[in-house]
């Protein structure tokens, strides 16, 4: 092509000048399709992916712990909430049996008792097995009788008269509405949840700090590239978008890998707990349903957001100090 022709083609005509009046913005999709302008090595690459993977694993474990504690405590306390237990002690088996029969009569005649059941001696002995072992509860041990009763809400609100009637009917009767136990479980669950939430928050802060450090390092390593981009007309936003996109890709890779590993570990723990018969009279069953796994997706989403936004803000702040 002749010089004059190419010159005409690349001279600033009126249309070109008019087009420059406004800064054009590429669509978000267009940006993601485009080839990255920052070199791979500059933005942390594999080390950043690995760090985010570890963060994701820890955050997912913390969140899974929080969910398990929440589910277990709810299940535990809801079981306890529904009923009361009446324990009847005595000097010997005959006294206990007589007291149990009298207490049962009181319970059955009380308005507001939905259901009441006297546990058999076998059932009561089974309750002691976790502490005494199987078959170790001999005839010589005066195992108290137990009555499990489901009460109406009104009766639960005012247990005083029932308690007095039981005492009158059987001196060794003790009414336990599980409140003290339930409150302890709630307190422990709350502490566990607070700890898990704090760990989750700390991991997010750590992820943000790592992203900020990596973004600054990446910017320093690519200072010549950034300078050239500026000189050909790139805005700070354009460069921040490039860095943000790079960090987002790394964060997606790392956080999903960490989440998968955490899900695997959580699944193994739940499976192991069940296989070892961990659930029973004392501990509630640990469950990790599909819903809980779906909630764990919060981890990669939060990590990607924290990483990308921190990287973007770090770059914009650093660039604002330049000419």
């Amino acid at each position: 092509m002749k010089t004059a022709v190419i010159a005409k083609r690349f001279s600033a005509d009126e249309e070109t000048k008019a087009g420059r009046a406004t800064l054009r913005r590429q669509s978000l999709l267009g940006r993601f399709r485009a080839e990255p302008l920052l070199p791979e090595a500059g933005a942390g690459g594999a080390p950043l992916t690995a760090a985010i993977g570890v963060m994701s694993f820890l955050a997912a474990i913390a969140l899974a712990g929080l969910l398990l504690i929440l589910a277990a405590s709810q299940e535990w306390t809801s079981e306890l909430e529904r009923g009361v237990t009446i324990q009847i002690k005595g000097a010997d088996a005959a006294e206990i049996a007589a007291g149990a029969a009298a207490a049962m009569k009181v319970v059955q005649s009380t308005e507001g008792v939905v259901e009441a059941r006297l546990l058999t001696r076998e059932e009561t002995e089974r309750l002691l097995e976790p502490w005494l072992g199987k078959g170790n509860v001999g005839e010589y041990l005066n195992v108290p009788a137990l009555i499990e009763a489901q009460l109406s809400d009104e009766l639960r609100e005012n247990l005083g008269p029932l308690e007095a009637q039981l005492k009158a009917a059987a001196a060794g009767a003790v009414l336990d509405d599980h409140k003290r136990w339930r409150d302890r479980v709630f307190a422990a669950a709350r502490s566990g949840q607070a700890l898990a939430a704090a760990v989750f928050a700390l991991i997010m802060v750590a992820a943000g700090a790592i992203a900020a450090f990596a973004a600054r390092a990446g910017l320093a390593a690519n200072s010549e590239v950034v300078s050239i981009l500026h000189l050909v007309g790139a805005t700070d936003d354009f460069i921040a978008n490039e860095v943000q996109r790079r960090f987002l890709v790394l964060a997606v890779r790392g956080s999903l890998a960490g989440l998968l590993l955490a899900a695997l570990v959580a699944g193994l723990v739940v499976f192991g707990f069940r296989a070892a018969g961990g659930a029973g009279y004392f501990l509630p069953e640990i469950r990790m349903g599909p819903g809980a796994f779906a909630i764990l997706l919060i981890v990669p989403v939060a990590l990607c957001l924290v990483t990308a936004v921190t990287a973007r803000l770090t770059v914009l702040k650093a660039l604002s100090r330049e000419m």
């Binding site: 800064l23 054009r24 913005r25 590429q26 485009a34 080839e35 302008l37 070199p39 791979e40 590239v225 050239i228 981009l229 050909v232 007309g233 790139a234 805005t235 354009f238």
Partner: peptide
Amino acid sequence: LDHLTAFENVALPMKVAGV
């Protein structure tokens, strides 16, 4: 930019302008 091709280097001003 060493990591870009000749084409991408020449196209850089257009790319940063969002064309």
